[in-house]
């Protein structure tokens, strides 16, 4: 099996980054609901610090790290079966988060 071309590797990296960001968002929200149940300051006083925006920023950062990992992993001459598993895991995590800890 030949190694993927550069364009394919970039696409794999982008998909990995997106899946990682979704998974990271679900985990962050779950951890926040489980361990840091504080009142949302935006509901009490005006605040320029939205908890949602902060979670989204951290999830995007984690997605960026995931993209680097995806790019590196795609260089190996193996089938990219892990990407499907990662996308499925991210999706399930997000659904669970939305149902259990919205």
């Amino acid at each position: 099996m030949s190694a993927p071309r550069k364009t394919e590797r970039i696409l794999i990296a982008a998909a990995t980054g997106a899946a990682t960001a979704i998974f990271a968002y679900a985990v962050l929200r779950g951890v926040e609901r489980a361990f840091y149940m504080e009142p949302n300051p935006a509901l009490l006083i005006w605040s320029d610090r939205s908890a949602f925006l902060w979670r989204a920023q951290v999830a995007l950062y984690a997605g960026g790290l995931g993209a680097f990992g995806g790019y590196a992993l795609s260089g190996f001459k193996t089938r990219v079966i892990w990407l499907g598993a990662l996308i499925a895991t991210g999706t399930i995590a997000l659904v669970l988060e939305a149902v259990i800890a919205p």
């Binding site: 610090r49 902060w54 920023q57 950062y61 960026g64 790290l65 680097f68 790019y71 590196a72």
Partner: peptide, 20 residues
């Protein structure tokens, strides 16, 4: 790739912290 990853790891996190 290693240089880009390290720059992203430290630089993007620093930018996030500054935004916060």
């Amino acid at each position: 790739l290693a240089v880009a990853f390290s720059l992203y790891l430290g630089g993007a996190a620093a930018v996030l912290v500054r935004l916060r």
